[in-house]
Design a binder for these strands. Structure first.
Lengths: 172, 172
DNA sequence: ACCGCTATGTATCGATTCGATATATACTGT
DNA sequence: ACAGTATATATCGAATCGATACATAGCGGT
C-alpha cells in the first residue's frame, strides 16, 4: 500500500524521498519510516513504475513512468478487498478524486458497511464483558467504549462524505 | 509491546495462544496476527517469562513465571517513552489498574501532552494546506480535518479518565 | 449415520514496516 | 565564524502482517 501512496503522489509531480515522507505524514494518519520508504522506492524503480531524475544537489527526484501510471490506475479502479486496512482505506481516500463520482460512493459505502459490522460485534463483546465478573477492569471497559465511539464517529464522517458527493453530483 | 500485552494477560490466568489473540482483539484496537503471536510466545518462553502447561487436548496453555512477573512489573512502572505508539499506550491503558493512582494520572497526562502537541502541528499543516492552491484536494483536506477531530476526541476522553481518577482518589 | 460447515487451535513463510542509527550537506540565527 | 537545526539518503535487525497449511471439535441438516 505504500507503493500505491508513492505512485499517487509522484504522479502529481516529481518528488524525492524526504518530500514523500513529509507529504504522507501531513495527511495526519501515518508517519512512514525511512526504513519503509527507501526500499519501496527501489521496488518501484525495479518494477519500472518510477524513475530517478537528476534532482537538485543531493536530492533524487523520482518521476512516474507510463507503466507506473497504468499500475496506479489499475490499483485505483480495483474494488477494495474486504480485508483492507484502515490505513489502506485512508490512502485510497487521499486519491479518491481520481475516480468518477459513482465509484467514489461505492468505495465509501463499502467502508461504511465494514465499520457497521465491526461496530455491531464490538457492542456484543462489550455487553458481554461488562456482565462478566472477571472482565470488570475499568480501563479495559473504557478502551472498548472509546473504540466504539471512535468507530461511530468514523461512520458519521463517511456519511458526510457520501452526502457531499451526492450533492455535488446532483448539482451537475 | 506484544510481549508486554501477553505478560499482562497471562498474569491474570494461564491462557493459550488462540485465547490471547481473541482477548487482545476484543479490546477493540488491535487484531494481532498468528505470525506475531506465536513467535512472541517462543520469545517469552526462551526468556523464561512464561512456561507451557499441559493444557487440554491440542491446547497449550501458558502460565507466567516469577521472572515474568518481574519483567511485567518493570515494564509497567517504567515511564512511557516519548516516542511511544498509539498502540503501546492503549496496551498500557489496558493494564493501568496495576499502577497506583498518582502514576496512572502521570501516564494519562503524558499522553495528553503528546496529543496536544500533535494537534497543534496538525492544525498548522492544515491551515497551510488549505491556503495552498496545489493542495486543495477535497478528500485530502477532509482526511486532515477528520484526523484532527479524532485527536480532539481522544484528548477529551483522556481528560475524562483523569477526572474519574481524581474523583476516585479524593473519595478515599 | 454421514456430510459439510464453521469455530478452534498451532504453526510457519515471505514480505512489509518499524525504529534506530550513520552520514553528510544546507540553512539560520547569534 | 560557529552552533544548532532542518534536510536528505541509506541500511540494519527486529517486529509485525497476511496468507497459508494443517488438524480436530462440534453442530445442523438430510
Amino acid at each position: 500500500m505504500l507503493d500505491f501512496a508513492i505512485l499517487g503522489l509522484v504522479m502529481e509531480r516529481a518528488r524525492h524521498g524526504y518530500e514523500l515522507k513529509r507529504a504522507l505524514g501531513e495527511l495526519g494518519f501515518w508517519k512512514v519510516s525511512f526504513g519503509s520508504l527507501y526500499p519501496a522506492l527501489r521496488r518501484l524503480e525495479k518494477r519500472g513504475a518510477i524513475e530517478a531524475t537528476g534532482g537538485t544537489g543531493r536530492r533524487k527526484a523520482y518521476r512516474i513512468t507510463d507503466s507506473g501510471r497504468d499500475i496506479f490506475a489499475t490499483l485505483m479502479s480495483t474494488d477494495p478487498d474486504a480485508s483492507e486496512t484502515e490505513r489502506a482505506f485512508q490512502i485510497r481516500l487521499a486519491f479518491l478524486g481520481h475516480l468518477p463520482t459513482d465509484r467514489r460512493v461505492q468505495v465509501l459505502e463499502g467502508r461504511r458497511a465494514k465499520l457497521s459490522t465491526h461496530l455491531r460485534s464490538a457492542r456484543e463483546i462489550f455487553i458481554d464483558a461488562r456482565s462478566n465478573t472477571e472482565n470488570q477492569d475499568r480501563y479495559r471497559l473504557a478502551l472498548m467504549e472509546h473504540a466504539m465511539a471512535t468507530t461511530e464517529s468514523d461512520i458519521a464522517w463517511i456519511d458526510g462524505l457520501v452526502a457531499t458527493e451526492r450533492r455535488v453530483a446532483s448539482a451537475n
